[in-house]
Each structure stands twice: as C-alpha cells, then as structure tokens.
Design a protein around this nucleic acid. Structure first.
Lengths: 232, 232
DNA sequence: ACCTGAACACCGTTCAAGT
DNA sequence: ACCTGAACACCGTTCAAGT
C-alpha cells in the first residue's frame, strides 16, 4: 500500500471520529451545544482541522443525516427481503421510518434546517450531491414497492407511485414531527387508513396488520439498529 | 385615561413594531439574519429594550407564531361559517393550513425549533402558555368539526376525533414540510384519500370537492390573508 | 503537505450607569 | 421607572505561521 492510501485511511477515520463526536453532542446536549469548537476539542484536533473535513457546521449535520439514511435504507432492504404481501412491505418501510425517527429525533429535526436556501448553499457541493442521492435511494425503495403493488393488482394504478410515496412519507414524517404519546401505534393505524383510502388490498378490515407490525418491529430492533457510531 | 394606560399602549405598539420588524427580516433574509441586534437597530431602540419585551430570540419566533395561529383561526372560522357539508368543512380547514404555510414558509419551519426542550425552556412562561393555548384553539376547531361529522353520521365514530385531527394535521403538515411542486393540489388529493379511508361521507367518488376547494381558496385569498404586519 | 491556534467579526445576554 | 450601550462570553470562519 502506498503512503497516500494510509493517509487517506487516516483521514477517513478522523472524519468518522468527528461524526461520532458530533452525534454524541447532538444526542446528549442538543443542537445548540453542537459547535465546531467542541467537536475539535473533544476530538483533540484544532478547529482548522475540522474545517478541513466539513465546510461548515451544517455540513456535519448533513453528513450525519446521510449516515442515518444509509441505515434506514439497509433496514428497509431487510424488511423487503421477507415474504410479505405488497401492503405489508410498504407498512414495513413506514415502520423503519418511525423507528429511525424515534431513535434519532434531534437529528431528524436538524435535517429540516438544510432546506433553508440560506443554509443549503453553504454546504459543500459534494455533500449536497451525496445527500440528494441518499434521499433518492431511500425513496426509490418506496416507489418500487408501490409500483410492484400496482403491477400485481393489489393497488389501483390511477395515481402515480411517486405521488403515493409522497403521501406516505408526508404522513409518517408529519406524525413523528408533531409527536404522539403512542407514535408507533398511531402511525400503524393512520397509515393503514390512508392505504385503505388508496384501495390497497387487502384492506384493514380483511387482514391483521397488527401482527406483522409487531413481528417486524422486534426483528428490526434486534438486528438492525446498532448505535450509528463506534466508541471513541 | 391614566398615564399608566398610555404607557401600556405605547408598550404594546412598540412590541408590535418589533414583531413587524422581526417578521420582515425573517421573510426577506431568513432565520440566520434575524438577530436581536438587528431588530433593535431597525426599530431604533437599544438591545436592552428589545429584551424588555422578549426574553430571548426564540421568544420573538414564538410571538410571531402566535400571531399566525390567530390568523389561521380566523380564517378557519370564516370557512366554518359557510353552509358546507362536514367533509367540505374539514377540507376547508386543511386548505387554510396550506395557504398559511405557503404564505409563511420560513416561520412554520422556525416554529419547529420551539419543540427542542433546550430551547422551549428559554421562553418566557407567559409566552409558553399563550402559545399552547393558541395551538389548542386552532386544533379545537378541527376536533369540533370532526365530532359534528360523527354526530350527524357522516363519519364512523370508531376513532376518536382527536386522533382523526392528529392524522389530518400530520398529513397536511408533512406535505408542506417536504414540499411539492403543486402543494395545494397534492394536499387536496391526498387528504381526500385519507378522508375516504376514514369513511367520511360523501366519498371522493361521490362528490366534487375540486369545485369547493377552488371557490373557498379564492374567497380566503381575497378576504382573509392580509400581510400580518402593518407598515412601519 | 498538513495542522495549528491566534485573530476577526458577529451575536446573545447582562447590568451598571444615565435620564 | 425606564432606557441605554458598554462589556462579556461564545461561536463560526479564516489564514499566516509553524512543523
């Protein structure tokens, strides 16, 4: 291995270290406590070095969000591997959304700030690209699942898959942002209502989605939600 | 009138001035540009005077949000005065949500920050109370409309009105936060799907909600959305 | 070539001093 | 009693100097 490769490896390790630190601060002390200075201090590097990795504070949040989106994608793929009906598959994807948002609540809120043009323009170009791609990948899993449901006739095809995916994301997203004392139950229940509205077979009255939901929930929690960061 | 009353009046006028200024900055330059210093400067007062009205920066955002909630409430009451079916009434309320969120996009995003405990604890107690009450008032309009629909038999009563209101808010809220090239149309369409799922009569296939939506939209835009602030 | 940390600008918040 | 603005702490960002 050349020297450059070792350098590159060290650089990536350091970047991961900074992200681990940033996420820990965010989780334990909130967004206001997440500062470039603190990340540098805890990591025992200078501020300049942190800026060598992230162009600004929002770049860090963006990178954290990308890591979470990748986890979300992996969890959804995990669900989609199972032998489930099309409607169970989409419910499983929604369940992943909820579990992720319950697990990383502060992060999901911070990500919204990236929509502000005044902020998103500060992101490094590479990070913007990567973020858009990650979101697209997760959304594709939804859209593909919906398309398949229409193909096999479980779901009327008078509405475009992208539109149905949008409605589902909006609903799940909105519920976790507003908050609910029993968020998972509420999500299962109200999302099923929406799917009934779309005419997605079998309708709630003809199937027991409660059981699928619980089982998938246990499996996902047991297997697929490690802490995002390694110890440092 | 006593001197105290005049003082009080002047104080309220100044508070309104600060809010007008804050909203203008937020709208034109974004949340990052909204600083206590700038509000003071533009208003030609000292920073200390601004702090005499608002305990912190978030207090201002909270106050702005309360003003918007009051406008939202007035618009919803405007819709609810009309002779509409129960389902049209709830659609009208949702339309108000969308119009408000399109009109004050940055504000609606900022309000989310108030959910962070690290931030909400900084708000003055009076402001916290007022904010909670304003939200409650708007939500009550939804809940009451839903209850009435169940009473007259337009809507099955196997789900609590509060839960249905939650689902509706989540969906509309989520859609405007995620964004959509045709937000109003998407909201009308997908919300109707959700209402169909709840079994809210008459179902989409049996009624023309498009026409109601357009008409109400025109009326609301013509009558009820003044700029929130007076010129200063 | 890479890393440092001093330096600058800016902002939130407080409070002693002035009117 | 009310208002001011200097003062302090803190943070984002840059960059000349060091290794």
């Amino acid at each position: 291995m050349s020297s450059l490769t070792r350098k590159e490896r060290e650089r990536q390790q350091r970047e991961a270290l900074f992200l681990d630190i940033a996420y820990d601060i965010l989780r334990n002390e909130g967004i206001k406590a997440l500062t470039m200075e603190k990340v540098a201090q805890v990591g025992e590097y200078s501020k300049g070095t942190v800026y060598g990795h992230f162009s600004c504070k929002e770049d860090i949040i963006s990178a954290l969000s990308i890591r979470t989106l990748m986890l979300q994608k992996a969890m959804m793929q995990n669900v989609l591997e199972g032998q489930w009906s099309s409607r169970e598959r989409i419910l499983g994807c929604a369940l992943v959304y909820v579990l992720i948002q319950v697990k990383y609540p502060r992060l999901h809120y911070c990500v919204l700030s990236l929509n502000d043009p005044q902020i998103s323009t500060k992101l490094s170009f590479a990070m913007q690209e990567l973020y858009a791609e990650s979101e697209e990948q997760v959304n594709s899993l939804l859209v593909d699942t919906i398309s398949e449901a229409q193909l096999v006739g479980d779901l009327p095809n008078d509405t475009a898959p992208e539109e149905i995916a949008y409605a589902i994301r909006a609903m799940v997203f909105g519920m976790s942002l507003i908050g609910h004392p029993s968020l998972e139950t509420a999500t299962r229940s109200h999302l099923n209502t929406l799917l009934d509205g779309f005419g997605w077979q079998p309708l709630t009255r003809d199937a027991d989605y409660h059981h699928f939901w619980q089982q998938t929930r246990e499996e996902l929690l047991a297997v697929s939600i490690p802490e995002i960061h390694s110890a440092y």
